[in-house]
Nucleic acid binder design. Structure first.
Length: 426
RNA sequence: GGCGGGUUACCCAAGCGGCCAAAGGGAUCUGACUGUAAAUCAGCUGGCCUAGCCUUCGGGGGUUCGAAUCCCUCACCCGCCA
């Protein structure tokens, strides 16, 4: 921690968090001259935020800690329209569903950014507040008139979509809605900066120019990189394809922790910079450690701990690290005492079987939720990827006996190297 | 409104009356090597009571001994013309 606080843009820059910005010098000066109100938008595309949203949220917090005030804009209106994707028209979501999602996302947002009465306390807004009563004629006259078709049609996403599978007028209008958001936030809160992922650049610039045309104000835009994993997948897409959610009902804290512990060496330092508040010094220590002793996975562990604590709290982090250490340590599961084993099993996915029904390894894998069909279970056994209590099972007719259950209760079933689950024996 | 093209498994994409549970590629999954890493190589990938049976090629209906393949119809998408 340095005594003289670093300029927020310089900090963001070394953390690799700036992809593009509008007039950088003017923005730098504005941020240096006093508290700035800034915003980022969150469309309710699902009932929970996912790991990919963290970059934005943490960026807002960084600004907040630097003395600025964040506005979190929930897309109650824009979420009903849908930001055009690279390919494929989105299906519309009903207003009710959007409202429901917004409620649960709002709770998550409030946990991740500080909301209080201080000058830097965050504000949660909803763009439905100004779109609800905006008539289509007013919209076309006051907003649409300021946007040139030539410019709109030149946008990458629009061009690609028109060249491939087409695009509805509804999605085409999305940029105008987001631009109007900026104007409203400028007028209501004096918001002078919008941050977003780099895929939002076009939308952000649209807003910046709109505010300038209408109110003659010089407001700014800043984009962060789209964080991707080694495969180029967006951060938060698990290898299985699904999202890694903040909601513990959708992604357990254990699974969340494991997702980050498995971060490849090539990305872990970048993630520490972008997704944690560790200092430069600490991060460079981890960089050294990863280079010298990668097998310790020290950086991965720290990353996973930081993010689990951020989202699920310190107590939960303690539990999942304990469970992970027990399961991935070199120790024999049979040596775990009953209490420890129960605690571990409380964190991982579990299922149950009745010994009286003479379940085979196939049923165990299925009960554990590690496979989705008996065929897949047999394949796993044939591939040599099935284990019970860390012992490989190669015969798909193998059945556990009562002596196999640890403490008379648990079978630890594993598929492959790192997919573990507990099966309770009845 | 007219004409033409299209809709195949997680994604892309071949197939155009039987040899099709459906080529090929990507992705996932598993194995080897490792460090719960990457890269590489190999195997697997609809379901089940697995010498067999069931469901699947946009929806529905039909022709045929037999259809992803032919016909009708509906829906949606793309293009050209108006």
């Amino acid at each position: 921690m340095s005594v003289v606080s670093e300029h927020i843009l310089d900090e963001l820059s070394w953390r690799g968090l700036i992809t593009q910005s509008t007039d950088r010098q003017a923005l730098h000066a504005d941020l240096a001259s006093g508290p700035v109100t800034l915003y980022a938008g969150f469309d309710p595309t699902a009932e929970s935020l996912h790991a990919g949203h963290l970059v934005q949220l943490l960026t807002l917090t960084r600004f907040q800690r630097a003395g600025h005030r964040p506005v979190l804009l929930a897309g109650g209106a824009t979420g009903q329209i849908g930001d055009p994707r690279e390919v494929g028209e989105r299906s519309l979501v009903s207003a009710d569903v959007v409202a429901e999602r917004l409620a649960s996302i709002g709770v998550q947002l409030e946990k991740l950014v500080t909301f209080d009465d201080s000058p830097t306390g965050a504000v949660l807004e909803n763009n439905l507040n100004w779109f609800r009563d905006l008539g289509s004629l007013d919209f076309l006259r006051d907003v649409g008139k300021h946007f040139s078709m030539n410019v709109l049609l030149a946008r990458d996403t629009v061009r690609r979509r028109l060249a491939s599978d087409g695009m509805s007028y509804t999605e085409f209008s999305y940029l105008l809605l987001q631009s109007y958001d900026y104007l409203q936030l400028y007028r209501r809160y004096g918001t002078k900066l919008q941050v977003g992922g780099s895929d939002q650049w076009g939308n952000i610039v649209g807003g910046v120019e709109y505010v300038r045309k209408v109110d003659g104000a010089a407001v700014h835009g800043l984009t962060t990189p789209l964080v991707t994993d080694a495969e180029g997948q967006k951060l938060g897409k698990s290898t299985g394809g699904g999202n890694v959610w903040l909601d513990p009902e959708l992604t357990s804290p254990y699974a969340w922790y494991q997702y980050f512990v498995n971060t490849p060496d090539s990305h872990v330092i970048d993630y520490l910079k972008m997704l944690t508040f560790l200092s430069r010094e600490e991060i460079s220590e981890y960089e050294q450690l990863t280079a010298d002793k990668p097998q310790l996975r020290a950086a991965q562990r720290r990353l996973a701990e930081e993010l689990t604590t951020l989202v699920h709290g310190a107590e939960q982090t303690r539990k999942v690290t304990a469970a992970s250490n027990a399961l991935f340590g070199k120790g024999d599961f049979a040596e775990l005492d009953a209490r420890t084993l129960d605690a571990v099993m409380a964190e991982v996915p579990t299922g149950e079987v009745r010994l009286a029904e003479e379940p085979s390894i196939v049923e165990l894998l299925l009960a554990a939720g590690l496979v989705q069909s008996k065929g897949a279970a047999r394949r796993t056994v044939a591939d040599g990827g099935a284990y019970v209590n860390n012992v490989k099972v190669t015969d798909d007719t193998w059945q556990p006996g009562s002596t196999d259950a640890l403490h008379g209760r648990w079978l630890v079933v594993r598929k492959g190297k790192r997919n573990l689950a507990g099966v309770q024996v009845r």
